[in-house]
Simulated scan of single mutants.
Amino acid sequence: MENFRFETQERLGDTIGEVAYRRIRSHIVNGQLLPDSKLKLERMKDVYGASVTTLREILNRLAVEELVTAEGQRGFRVAAASGAEFRELAALRTLLETHALRASIMQGDIEWEASVVAAHYKLSVAERRLVASQNNGVDKWVSCDWGFHHATIAACGQPVLMKTHASIFDRFARYHMLVMNFRGQGVVDDHTSLRNLVIARDADAAVALLTQHIQSGFDHVMATGCFE
Rank of each mutant, 00 (worst) to 15 (best):
L41W: 11
I28T: 00
T53S: 05
I24M: 05
E42I: 14
E57D: 13
Y21M: 15
G31D: 04
M44L: 06
E66P: 05
T54F: 05
V47S: 01
E57L: 14
A63K: 09
T69G: 14
G49H: 07
G31T: 00
Y48H: 03
L41K: 10
N30I: 05
E71Y: 05
M44H: 01
L34F: 03
I58D: 01
N60E: 13
L59D: 02
N60R: 14
K45T: 12
R61H: 08
S37K: 02
Y48L: 08
V52L: 15
K45R: 14
L59V: 04
L33F: 00
A63D: 03
I58M: 03
L62T: 02
G72Y: 13
R43M: 06
L34D: 05
E66H: 11
G31P: 01
R23E: 08
V64P: 11
R22V: 04
M44N: 14
R22D: 07
N60D: 09
M44T: 06
L33P: 00
V64D: 15
R43P: 02
T53P: 08
N30K: 04
I28V: 02
D36N: 06
H27S: 12
T69M: 09
K38I: 12
N60S: 13
K38M: 07
Y48N: 05
L33R: 00
R43Q: 15
K38L: 15
L59F: 07
V47E: 05
Y48K: 07
Q32K: 12
M44S: 05
N30S: 07
S37F: 10
E71L: 13
R23N: 10
L33T: 00
G31I: 01
V29M: 12
G49A: 15
K38C: 06
N60I: 14
G49R: 08
Y21R: 09
R61P: 13
I58F: 01
E65I: 08
L34Q: 08
L34I: 04
A63S: 15
R22F: 10
E57N: 13
E65R: 12
E42K: 09
Y21C: 10
V68T: 04
V47D: 05
L55S: 02
R61L: 14
H27Q: 11
L62A: 02
E66S: 12
S51K: 13
I58E: 01
Y21I: 06
V64L: 11
G72Q: 14
T54D: 09
L34W: 03
M44K: 09
G72M: 02
S26N: 14
N60P: 08
D46M: 14
V52Y: 09
A50W: 09
T53M: 07
E71I: 09
E57I: 13
E57F: 08
V52I: 12
L67T: 00
I58C: 03
D36Y: 03
L34T: 13
T54A: 07
R22K: 04
E42W: 14
L41D: 10
T53N: 05
D46W: 01
K40H: 14
D36V: 10
I28P: 00
P35N: 05
L33K: 00
R56N: 12
E57M: 10
K45G: 07
V68K: 06
R22T: 04
A63N: 04
P35R: 03
I24D: 01
S37G: 03
K38E: 06
K38W: 04
I28S: 00
D46I: 15
